[in-house]
Each structure stands twice: as structure tokens, then as C-alpha cells.
Amino acid sequence: MSIQTITHVEYHCADAAQTAADFRAGFGFLPDARQPDRVAGEHRIHVQQGTIRFRLTSADAADHPVARWVDRHGDGVAVLALGCTDPQAALERAERHGAVVLDRAGGLIAGFGDTALRFVPLDHTPAEPGELLDALDHVAVCVPAGQLADTVRFCEAALGFQRIFGEYIEVGQQAMDSSVVQSASGDVTFTLIEPDTSRRAGQIDRFIADHDGAGVQHLAFSTGDIATAVRTAKARGVQFLSTPSTYYDGLAERLGGTAIPVGTLRELDVLVDQDHGGQLFQIFARSTHPRRTFFLEVIERQGAGTFGTANIKALYEAVERQRATASV
């Protein structure tokens, strides 16, 4: 009955056709070989790359549930589909541990705010190697202050996940608390973040306000060659968050050498950190969301199994710079 993977992401948006075109143009997603769903009142498009699959849905009328979701939250992740060895048993376990069942026939439970979780059978469709991206590395979720501990407990009890990492992060007068939970398979990872409201309000507070509650802040895609992926995406018009040049000046002293040359990292604005297993490289795309409440990440792991402590702070600072620039 255990959760093995995320089979697909159900993404609600104002214009499914335009969103699909953006995914294809910037990151090389392709139409999914499976037939799109035909649902009255909805426009659905499936795109995929590697094992990453999206169901992009927009509504034909303003009173449709999808349109109401987008009106409240903006374009974003509405459902994470969790591939299980026994979806029914997974649903029953979640319900026993307090999960709210939204659609029993559809295996749907309440997850993080209005982002739901769906228990589905494992997808055994062979995945072709992606042009730039391979898999969904992790999902970052923001929750209101005071809800992090309960959210971790929900993931542990209802989903059978384990907390593998936690950190309190301070950036100037702002701060946030985070925990990482992961499935027993190791293939589903949620990074859970809450703001510290005893400090000055920051981007996590703004996410909660602008998104109108808890939800997915970003999706991280793994790649086997981040330099090529970023260089190609940039050439196709994708904009990434910049990194101060001073970040790279101290890398040699901090890490003692990097698997990707520092000059390449500096050129592409890629961040690097390491844990006991090795190094990880990551970069964050500039949000094109009108509310700045959703963005994408590209990550390459060379042995590292956790998250770069310094990079979480660097991401926070980079997003702050983007917001400051956008407000000018």
C-alpha cells in the first residue's frame, strides 16, 4: 500500500494551451503519449518529460471549480497524484489517521490547503530520457505559521513518510522554519516551510497571503547535466534568478573544490552545496506568476541526498531580490 512516486501533477491554470506551450518552449516538455481526458467544461493537456508528467487544466466558464481555484490561488498545483502499490489501502490508512476524504472514488484527500493528494495505481509506462529534465526531485510547500509540526505529523501518520531533515533559517530580520519529509521509497520528497511571525514578515508570509493559504511554492526537476539544461533553457527564453558574484568567491574555501567548475557555475548563476554523500547543484527560475507564488527549480545531484543548507538561504535572498526588482 506504500506510496512509491508522484505519477503526475494536476496543474490548474487560466489557459492550458498557453501553459503547455510555455513548458514545451522553455524546458522541452512533449505532449504525453496518452490520450488527453475529455471532460465537459474543461480543457486538459498532458505534457511529459522523463518521468515528469503534468495534467494542465483550464475551465471554459468562470463558475467551474477549476476556474474558482485559479481565481483564488492563481495558476498552480491543485493535486499531487501519488502512485501506490495499493491505492485503496493507502486511502484507508490516511483516513484512519485523520485525513479528510474529498472524493473516495477518485482516491482524493485534502493535503496542503487547497492542494489535494490523489492515491493512484503505479504508472508502469516506460519513461524515455528527457531532453533536459529527468524526474521530479521534490515539492516545496508553504504552510501558515504554527502549522508545520502538524503538517509533518500528517505526512508521517497519514502518508507513512519520515522526517529526514529540518532547519531554522534566518535572513536579516526575517526567518522561517523548515522540515523535509520523504516516502519510504525515497522518491517522494516534500519540503515543508512555515514563516516565523515573531520576526519581520517576509516572502513566506507573502506567499501565504497572496496564494490565500497553504500550497506548493515550487517544483524541483532533476537533471543529469544542469549546465546544459540551464544553458539551453536560457537560450530558449527562460529567465533564472541571479546570484551575487561574491557567492562564488568563497566556494573553494567553503567546499574545497566543485565537480562543476566555479567559472561555469558563476556564468550560469548555479548554486552548489554538499552533504556527506556528495554535492548538489541547483538554480531557480524567475517566477512568471503574476502573484509571484509559483516557480520552478532545476537540480543536479552528484551523490548528495539532502538539501544544501547554504542554498536555502541563498534561494530566500534571491527571491527577495526578484520581489524588490518587480516592485520598482
Rank of each mutant, 00 (worst) to 15 (best):
A89S: 05
T264K: 12
Q174V: 08
F281W: 00
G277P: 00
V188W: 00
S2A: 01
D249H: 15
V79G: 03
T5P: 04
T325E: 11
T223H: 05
G111M: 11
G224T: 14
D134S: 15
Q49M: 15
E320Y: 01
A110K: 10
E156Y: 00
H46I: 04
G186R: 03
H97C: 09
T191G: 00
V319G: 04
Q282G: 02
V139H: 02
E194H: 01
H8M: 04
Q322N: 06
A175C: 09
T228R: 15
S222L: 08
S185W: 11
F190W: 09
C155I: 13
V70T: 05
I260M: 08
R321A: 15
D103G: 06
V298N: 08
V216I: 14
R286C: 08
T125E: 14
G308Y: 14
G303K: 07
D22C: 10
E10N: 03
G305I: 10
D187S: 01
F161L: 13
A90N: 06
P195K: 05
D63R: 05
S287P: 03
C13M: 10
D75C: 00
H276F: 10
V216C: 10
A17C: 02
S327T: 15
L82Q: 05
R153D: 09
P244G: 00
H124W: 05
F284H: 10
D123T: 07
A20C: 14
A14E: 10
P65F: 12
A285R: 01
T85N: 07
Q4F: 08
A78V: 09
V238D: 02
A318G: 13
A127W: 07
V39S: 11
G113M: 06
D225F: 05
I208S: 05
H8R: 12
L241M: 04
R292M: 13
A235E: 07
E267P: 12
E92A: 13
G111R: 06
F281M: 01
A326S: 01
A227N: 02
A99L: 06
Q173M: 09
P121R: 04
A16T: 13
R163H: 02
G83P: 12
S242T: 12
Q88D: 11
L136Q: 02
I3D: 04
V143R: 09
H43N: 15
I283P: 04
F307D: 08
T125V: 14
D275Q: 08
G106F: 11
V216L: 07
A40L: 04
L265D: 06
L241V: 00
G76L: 03
H218N: 11
D177Q: 14
Q35T: 15
T125G: 11
R292Y: 12
F23L: 15
A310W: 08
G107A: 14
C142K: 05
R153Q: 10
R266C: 08
V100P: 00
G224K: 14
Y316F: 15
A140C: 14
D275S: 04
V141S: 05
A229G: 03
A184P: 00
E10V: 09
F221L: 12
T246L: 12
L80P: 10
R24E: 14
I3H: 05
